[in-house]
């Protein structure tokens, strides 16, 4: 699936044979927990009978992780997975936000603001519509936070460069 993911990100559609092979390898699976947000849409189209959720959602459903999210935290959502299942996830993240009392990387319309997901394209020399550093500055602007918690590993480096506070991955919440 890593090869297929790399192809999709580069704009290459997987061959039907590749998909058949993948389907047979995944025949007993009922749920995918997927870190790469851009893959969610494709996996739902290929496997409509299976559940596809993001890594952040899977971890936030664990009580020990949910309890460790605090009011002073800024939680940074992985935007591509969020937008691929927007109707359901607005409700899910709203309930997480209300329960923890934290802030989130969403706009007033509750759209998740993209950050580091475009970095790999830029590193490969492709143009990107989003400047990750600008997005991070905008998210942090006039916000007083004690800690930044990111869902996407790609966002960690960018936030660490620009944020004066501690930056951790959601799996490191304690």
């Amino acid at each position: 699936i890593s090869d297929i993911a790399a192809d999709i990100e580069a704009g290459v559609r997987p061959e039907p044979k590749q998909l058949e092979k993948l389907a047979s390898a995944m025949s007993g699976v009922t749920e995918f927990v997927v870190a790469e947000g851009f893959l969610h849409r494709y996996l739902r189209a290929w496997f409509p009978e299976k559940k596809v959720i993001g890594l952040g959602e899977a971890l936030l459903r664990l009580p020990e992780i949910a309890k460790a999210l605090k009011p002073g935290d800024l939680y940074v959502i992985e935007a591509r997975g969020y937008h691929s299942d927007y109707k359901r996830l607005v409700k899910f993240y709203d309930s997480v936000r209300l329960q923890a009392g934290c802030t989130m990387s969403t706009s007033l319309q509750r759209a998740a603001i993209p950050v580091g997901a475009t970095e790999p394209q830029k590193q490969r020399g492709c143009s990107s519509r989003v400047d990750s550093s600008e997005q991070v500055r905008w998210i942090l602007d006039r916000r007083k936070v004690d800690r930044v918690v990111v869902e996407s590993v790609e966002d960690m480096g960018i936030f660490k460069n620009l944020s004066p506070v501690n930056v951790i991955h959601v799996s490191e919440l304690r």
Binding site: I1, S2, A5, A6, M26, G28, V29, T30, E31, F32, V33, V34, A35, E36, L39, L55, A58, L59, L62, I65, P120, S152, V153, E154, H169, S171, E172
Partner: peptide, 27 residues
């Protein structure tokens, strides 16, 4: 049913985080 975790390249490259996630998801 069974669950499968697809970590992607960025998580795979970060060994410590990859192991932490695997431990949590196996609970």
């Amino acid at each position: 049913g069974s669950k499968v975790f697809l970590p992607g390249m960025a998580v795979r490259k970060n060994e410590q985080i990859f192991q932490g996630i695997t431990r949590l998801l196996e609970q």
